[in-house]
């Protein structure tokens, strides 16, 4: 089997494409250094990521892909699924080898899979927009821990930024140990120390870190949430279907 080793970047995948067409050799698997190697390797190629080459590939793809298909490709990349590399590689090849418009051939399994994964990643971003719960800290920062299935933090940041222009916030992805901090002017990446992270694992900030009114509003919200349920329509299954259990630990109203 033929193996490509790359640097686990999006530019890297595009460089793989360039290399493959240049050397007329196509991989059976694309892995990064950190990945475990399969047992039977006939040949392997180390692909240098070269921005000029990847840019040329992207320009070629841009010509053949609609804006929404380009966006889907980026969403697939953010999925971080194990199949990502080979799926994108296969997809790009098909797009390059076929006429403009192949992205609409949903009878093709790669085209359909790209759409499916893009939908899932978008869905996860939407869930984060729905279920983020900010807690106001003593120093006025609104803090929300999340644990996202896909790497969607960058996708949701613009939404919160334009929604709360005057409100400093941190959304922290505990699963990936990084967060975004908006200081009312710009966004920056933040990483907490292990010790801080441990305290967030309990999902809730300790009371002494919260603003004076935080608990008060949390209680009002919980009370509201309890009150509006209609007992004659009790349907916890439907509730779980819309609001999967994995989010509950971050939801104020479910504590």
């Amino acid at each position: 089997m033929t193996l490509f080793i790359y640097d686990h970047t999006f530019d890297g995948i595009l460089s793989c494409i360039f290399y493959a067409y240049e050397h007329k050799t196509f991989p059976d698997a694309i892995l990064s250094d950190a990945d475990q190697r399969p047992l039977f390797i006939d040949e392997w190629h180390h692909i240098e990521t070269d921005e000029k080459k990847s840019q040329r590939v992207w320009t070629a793809l841009e010509r053949k892909l609609s804006k929404s298909a380009q966006n889907m490709v980026l969403l697939v990349w953010l999925s971080e699924l194990p199949e990502t590399e080979m799926l994108l590689f296969g997809y790009f090849r098909k797009i390059i080898d076929h006429q403009h418009g192949f992205e609409m051939n949903f009878g093709d399994s790669d085209v359909l899979r790209v759409k499916e994964i893009a939908r899932k990643v978008n869905g996860e971003a939407e869930k984060i927009r729905q279920f983020v719960r900010f807690q106001k800290t003593k120093d006025g920062i609104f803090f929300a821990p999340i644990s996202a299935q896909y790497n969607v933090l960058a996708l949701v940041a613009p939404h919160f930024r334009s929604r709360y222009p005057d409100q400093p916030w941190i959304i922290y992805d505990i699963a990936r140990n990084f967060g975004l901090y908006y200081d009312t002017h710009s966004l920056q990446e933040v990483t907490f120390s292990l010790q801080d992270l441990k305290s967030f694992k309990s999902r809730k900030l300790e009371n002494e870190k919260l603003s004076e009114t935080e608990i008060y509003y949390q209680n009002l919200w919980k009370e509201y949430f309890e009150t509006i349920a209609i007992k004659e329509r009790f349907n916890p299954k439907l509730q779980r279907q819309h609001m999967p259990k994995r989010f509950w630990k971050y939801l104020t109203e479910m504590q």
Binding site: R163, Q239, E253
Partner: peptide, 18 residues
């Protein structure tokens, strides 16, 4: 303060699934 998004956002679901 605030935006609206075309499709509407559900922020929670009560025990009746609404």
């Amino acid at each position: 303060l605030g935006t609206t998004s075309g499709w509407g956002i559900c922020h929670s679901f009560t025990s009746d699934g609404r």
